[in-house]
Design a protein around this nucleic acid. Structure first.
Lengths: 220, 220
DNA sequence: TCAGCGCCGGGAAAATTTCACGAGCGTGGC
DNA sequence: GCCACGCTCGTGAAATTTTCCCGGCGCTGA
């Protein structure tokens, strides 16, 4: 009763992590890893080439982030399924990822079965969210806290992420293929929406909300 | 053989902490707490009024910070002895405090006897440094890492601290009694010295070096 | 005494931030 | 269909900030 194998693409900038995915997934019958990418741009290119049934995507990667990659892939193929698998135990990222078109969001701290389970859910059209993220979402909802992710549009959040990653206005502009002037406008708009007056407050807000974590500081 | 009692002033913005100091110190014969202040400005004022033999000073306080307070006190009385007692287990702060004229630097995680011991050392003219800070200093020295504290002058470091505390240029200017223009000049100079191009990089550098900690984010 | 350095700030050029405005474009309701 | 709405992107000009260069002042060590 094995149908034709489902194809999967892995996207993560650490080869060892991709190896981990692979070893976990190949224990499942009916799954086949057909492509691997180490950054968002490569993921987009390889998706167009191989058209897998499912993409498993990390978020923090060099160049364009995972969320932007999801948006591009979904723009090219509206039926694309992308499952986010990331270290970020943060509701803000989950909201943005789902909004960008992700089919699920699983944190790397989840038990191994959770990924496999989420893969199956995603393949069958369901949306899978990690319990810890569910909890975060519920909490922030109950607290009535207006998270950055709720105030910002997808584009704005993307720019915020790149700003926090110490990228210059021009770098962001060329990465997103828009004018530096637009990035400056978004930068200003973001600060306005979040109610902060300076970049310093912006970083601190991002830290409080977990958009930027202490760990990110040592990464590129 | 008890000489005349040595007078001490306590400076900490939390009353309960001052109470702790007091209870520890009064077990020592020959010591007498003659004044208490809850911020840097009050400390300066009370020092001029009471002229204690030793000041025990916290660093993170509202208004002007502890380091600025040390500078002012030492400017008024070159022979003033100030012992820093703080939560900051960070070499950068120790370097700056000593540079500002502190007679010692003890962290709040140190065992109770350490404070008493440091008080005695300070009173007898010795400079007392916590073992953990000694270790930090040794480490960063061995690593050859150029810490922010080594590159910046006392004034620059002070301004950096206040910038990171989300204070505006004008607020800093009036707190330090200098022109906003000078603050802007210092801000620019700091970024230049630390080799960062934006405020965002500045905050991230400060976080990496422990000048700003995650904990500070929720405090005023 | 004098050179060096930190500190303070003015002035002007350069860069950035902000604001106002408008054109596409996709989405959802009628 | 068709309209209204919000998001995106961009321009241009004004307002503000950042940066650079300058000189004066006070302290310190040779």
């Amino acid at each position: 009763m094995i149908a034709s194998a489902r194809t999967i693409m892995l996207v993560d900038d650490h080869a060892v992590v991709r190896e981990g995915y692979r070893s976990m997934l190949q224990k499942q019958p009916g799954l086949c890893v057909v492509a691997e990418a180490s950054d968002g741009a490569e993921a987009y290119r390889l998706y167009k080439e191989t058209g897998p049934d499912l993409v498993i995507m990390d978020l923090s990667m060099p160049g364009i982030g995972g969320i932007e990659a999801i948006r591009r892939i979904r723009q090219w193929d509206k039926r694309a399924k992308v499952l986010v698998f990331t270290m970020h135990q943060n509701a803000a990222f989950a909201v943005q990822a789902i909004r960008a078109g992700a089919s699920g969001y699983v944190t790397k701290t989840s038990p191994p079965e959770a990924l496999v389970h989420a893969v199956m859910d995603a393949l069958s059209g369901k949306i899978a969210i990690s319990p810890d993220i569910d909890h975060e979402l519920a909490l922030s909802h109950l607290a009535g806290e207006t998270a950055a992710a709720d105030l910002l549009t997808a584009r704005e959040f993307e720019v915020l992420r790149m700003l926090l990653a110490e990228r210059t206005t021009d770098e962001i502009a060329s990465a997103l293929h828009i004018s530096p002037k637009t990035v400056a406008n978004l930068h200003s708009l973001i600060k306005d929406k979040l109610g902060v007056g300076s970049d310093i407050e912006l970083v601190r807000l991002a830290l409080r909300q977990g958009i930027l974590t202490q760990i990110d500081l040592s990464e590129p």
